[in-house]
């Protein structure tokens, strides 16, 4: 096995890990604040990707140009979706499971709508950076004696990683250092108590839903740099990965999800290199089952949130 593959896995792990971290964190905001199990989360991400694709194919601009538009549109779309869907769930016999099924229905509608608008094919996003690749380091004798190899990373992925980390940093700052962020954390820890101290839980919930939707959309935009194509059926795997991440990180803890996302990205990329394809696809789910059965509070415990 060439060590170049392992370096690639390491970098891939960082790049995808940051993506998963963001998807997991936004899913966990919904889970934690609203007790909504968003089975359509992958499709929320997909909306961001397709909007970026539209911006790119209409204007030829960098898909990143779509970032602000997507963030704002998804925020308000999320708030609207909240008022349309979520408050009624309180009347059901098992609100959590109902939200799960409801959002599964929403995901079917979203996939079908996206397919209707864009067609069922996978569309390429052929935006290229200059230079296309950046050589991070040189490995001596990578392909036998005297044949050195370079660890090449697509510039687009590096850009995606940097932006992603910036968003993660901003989000962490928001949650720990700002008043709305603290309210959010309070709502996650104790939804009932926070109403007593005079916070309008409905408005907070709607904003949290909007924020999570916006984050998901933004992740979708960044995703078009990492995987330069958009696929109407690409949402379901993302949803499943997001669930793996939030279970590993602890259900309802956005910060746990960030760590778990990085971990899952690494595990996934290394298994892709080291294991047969079907086995590699299994690893994440095996981790999920093991964590739920043996350590249901998540890998990092409750301290992470404090």
């Amino acid at each position: 096995m060439s060590s170049i593959l392992l370096y690639n896995a390491l970098i891939g792990g960082l790049v995808f890990g940051a993506i998963y971290a963001l998807i997991g964190a936004s899913l966990n905001v919904m889970m934690g604040v609203l007790r909504v199990v968003n089975f359509a989360h992958g499709e929320f991400v997909l909306i961001g990707s397709f909007l970026a694709y539209s911006v790119f194919s209409l204007t030829g601009l960098n898909p990143l140009a779509a970032l602000p538009v997507v963030a704002i549109a998804m925020f308000f779309g999320g708030v609207a979706a909240y008022y349309l869907l979520i408050p009624r769930l309180r009347y059901s016999d098992d609100a959590e499971t109902s939200s799960f099924l409801l959002m599964f229905g929403v995901s079917l509608m979203l996939v079908s709508s996206i397919t209707w608008i864009y067609g069922a094919d996978i569309r390429p996003v052929n935006f290229s950076f200059d230079p296309v690749n950046i050589a991070l380091l040189t490995v001596e004798d990578a392909y036998g004696k005297g044949r050195d190899g370079k660890v090449l990373v697509p510039t687009a992925r590096l850009v995606a990683l940097v932006i992603n980390l910036a968003i993660i940093a901003a989000m962490t700052w928001f949650i720990y250092r700002t008043l709305p962020g603290k309210a959010l954390r309070g709502a996650i820890m104790n939804r009932d108590a926070i109403q007593v101290v005079g916070i309008d839980i409905d408005r907070l919930s709607a904003n949290a839903f909007g924020l999570a939707a916006a984050l998901a959309g933004v992740t979708g935009v960044i995703l078009t740099l990492v995987i330069p194509s958009v696929d109407p059926n690409g949402g379901a795997p993302l949803t499943l990965f997001a669930f793996i991440v939030i279970v590993l990180g602890g259900l309802g803890h956005p910060i746990g999800a960030l760590l778990a996302g990085m971990l899952f990205g690494m595990v996934e990329q290394f298994s892709n290199v080291l294991l047969p394809q079907s086995a590699a696809q299994m690893v994440g789910f095996v981790m999920l089952v093991a964590v739920v059965m043996f350590k249901p509070e998540g890998l990092f415990g409750r301290k992470v949130m404090r």
Binding site: S98, L101, L102, G105, V106, M109, S112
Partner: peptide
Amino acid sequence: FLLGLVIALLI
């Protein structure tokens, strides 16, 4: 789409 809509309306 309609399958999804039926699910959502039912819930």
